[in-house]
Each structure stands twice: as structure tokens, then as C-alpha cells.
Amino acid sequence: MSGTGNPIQILFIQGGGEGTHDAWDDKLVASLQAALGPGYEVLYPRMPDEDDPGFRTWSTAIAAEIARLAPGAILVGHSVGGTIAIHTLAKRPALLRDLAAVFLLAAPYVGDGGWPSDEIDVAPGWASGLSAVPVILYKGDADDTTPMAHADLYARDIPHAKLRRLNGRDHQFNNDLTDIAGDIRQA
């Protein structure tokens, strides 16, 4: 718990796709909250237009959610939510000020070698401002949604990031975020 006795806030940004908030990522949030226990509060806002995640719309929503967090909060982004969150933070480094860490779960990489995007501009050095906060990348080796190489591309662009490969985990981490909860407790 934080020094004030309040629980540490975890902002969980969902992935994209119709029904993701209520039928997929809600299981990840439940697993994370159960594994972390009462000293943590997992916040799980519904992203706008989840079936068609646009960078501008989601980035605005994510920035607003971050602005409401207490100092020492942790951001966890899953899938495309993680992609949009990390690029939002890179474009608006002032948002990093009060974050203790950023955890990206199976986030698709956008840019050369990854997936194309008309909305996210990935210029050389795009991640340079992220060095102000620890970044931990997670990728399951049974994920058939985003290639393993995407995690390596993030690790290349964010040199201080730690990359954890989890054996037997799919894109939804088999609905078990116990490992990630353990790392959050260390953040």
C-alpha cells in the first residue's frame, strides 16, 4: 500500500474488439485483482468504440484516466490497449510523472517490422521519453494473435524495458495474471 494507507492504483487498459471489455479482458482484471489483494485497486475503464479502437479517441481517454490517478499508480495495457497506451505516453511524457511503472501485455508493435498504422507515427527515437519510468513487456509463447517478434521490437525501441516471455501463455495469458501481479508488487 502507498504511504497514505490508500491502495495502490492499477489502471488496466483493455484490448480492442467487440465485447472485449465484458467478455475477455474482464477475466484478466479479475485475475490481477485476486492475485494482488486488498492493497491494490484495479481500475478498469471501458474504452470508447472498443470494436474499432482509434488512436486519437483511445489516447484521449487513456490520458484522461492517467490524469485522475494518484502518484505511484501503475499502468497495465493489454493488446492494442497497450500499444495505444505506450504511444500516448511517448507523445505526452508529462503523463509519466506520477506513474511507478508501465506493464505491456501482448501489445502489437506498430512500425517497421510490426503492424501498419495510419494513425500512429513511429519515427526513429519515438520511445526516448519513456526512460523516466520502468517498462515491463510480457509475451506468451502460445500467443497466436501477435507475433513474438513484436515484443523484441519493443525491447529494441525501449532499451531499458524488461522482457518476460511466459511459457504456454496465449494472447489472454490463459486468463491468469499471477506472474504479472508478482512483478507489480516489486515495482
Rank of each mutant, 00 (worst) to 15 (best):
P38T: 06
G111K: 07
G16L: 00
V102W: 12
G129Q: 10
D98Y: 06
A23C: 01
I136E: 14
A100V: 08
P108C: 10
A64G: 02
D121I: 15
A90L: 06
Y138H: 13
A155N: 14
W126S: 04
L104P: 11
V122N: 15
A142K: 15
A64P: 04
H150C: 05
R165D: 14
G17I: 04
L69Q: 13
P159A: 15
T178N: 12
G125W: 15
P124L: 11
A94L: 08
F173E: 14
G19K: 04
Y44R: 00
F173H: 11
E65P: 00
L96M: 10
A100G: 11
D143T: 09
W115K: 08
A161V: 15
A127T: 12
S131F: 08
R56Q: 12
Q9L: 00
D121V: 15
R92G: 02
V102A: 10
A107R: 07
G168F: 14
L177H: 12
A34Q: 06
K162H: 15
R164I: 15
M1K: 05
N175M: 08
Y154S: 10
A23P: 03
I180N: 13
E18C: 02
P7H: 03
Q14P: 00
Q186N: 13
W115S: 05
W58H: 05
A64Q: 15
G54T: 05
S128M: 06
L32M: 02
L105H: 14
R46Q: 09
E65W: 04
G17K: 06
E18T: 10
G113A: 14
P159S: 11
